[in-house]
Design a protein around this nucleic acid. Structure first.
Lengths: 180, 180
DNA sequence: TGGTACATGTAACATGTTACATGATTAG
DNA sequence: CTAATCATGTAACATGTTACATGTACCA
């Protein structure tokens, strides 16, 4: 009976397969690679690393400058990770505050709602541009590209396109900014 | 300075505008109306109701059968709700465990990955069918339809279609079930 | 009339969030 | 050389999850 990992901790172990890293390194890498569909905070990363070190899933190297500790995955960590990653994944969980506000839109003046919507549309537009840039920058020679990273990036692109499409078919009344 | 609501509690207040309801009623209604993009559990509902009762945002009627308590929104509750719903909504937060597993797909045998993917594809397919049925059942006379509910339902449809489209463009290797 | 599902709730715990503290590095 | 930012971490608290306990209604 191996240690029970949560998805956040497990992801850290996943990244540590590429070599030892500090908490900060992991935060940055997680943001790049899974931030699109798995949010985590810097503070969680440090906590999970500390816990996993206690359990022997990772090993901390000697503190360097700024008390920087570099963590390496252990054999126990590899075992726990493989066990985790081969379990049937749970259902997805979306929390989209804009839609909550919209669902109760009758309590919000329409122009205010329109301004909320327009701000979020920009965010999604920018994210899509970012993902598309990433895809464009990938080596066209598919030998060098991790097919799993491609698949998740494709998800981001498909998702953001759909969201924009949804924005663009909202009734004019909900997107008209005249008074705000 | 009104009481600081979280989105989950605020939603309960939103629903209580339609009339007094019990915790159970609220769980059911939330699932129907916002479950698509805002998950909550039964146990949270009871906790938030208890807290809001303490703060005077809702008032509990006399316990009925099974200790059933029906909550009504108070004037303070209405004020707090309006304040909440008119704030700029935060960014959305997606947690999609399947994508996490896929991101670390190199550690999973392909047929196993394919079986995870196929199971999730079914879930999304069914959800889409359900949303489309709901839309079809709406009175074609738009007078009677809450335009905000239509907008959020459209989101669900757009989202699920996009997810299916994404599933269908995955490389065959990730969707081929031959060995599992 | 006994079993199953419904409805209500509580408690313990895990996870997520926000705010802060502190030294190290870098840019001007 | 000093102010801003980077990197590390901790602590307190809020929220989310899971498991359990208990009575009620329904139905075969």
């Amino acid at each position: 009976m191996t240690f029970e990992l949560n998805p956040t901790a497990a992801s850290l172990l996943g990244f540590l397969h590429d070599g030892p890293m500090s908490g900060w390194d992991l935060v940055v890498r997680a943001e790049e690679r899974i931030g699109e569909f798995w949010s985590l905070t810097q503070s969680q990363v440090y906590r999970e690393l500390a816990r996993m070190a206690q359990e022997g899933l990772v090993e901390a190297g000697e503190p360097g400058t700024r008390a920087r500790k570099v963590y390496a995955i252990s054999d126990e960590g590899r075992d726990a990770f493989v066990e985790w990653v081969r379990r049937p994944p749970g259902n997805e969980n979306i929390r989209f505050p804009l839609l909550l506000t919209l669902a109760f839109g009758q309590h919000v003046p329409d122009p205010m709602l329109a301004s909320f919507i327009s701000r979020h549309r920009i965010i999604h537009h920018d994210r899509l541009a970012n993902y598309e840039r990433q895809r464009a920058e990938m080596p066209s020679d598919y030998e060098d590209v991790d097919p799993y990273a491609v698949a998740t990036l494709e998800f981001g692109i498909t998702y953001e396109r759909a969201v924009l499409q949804w924005f663009d078919q909202l009734p004019r009344r909900l997107t008209d900014l005249r008074d705000e």
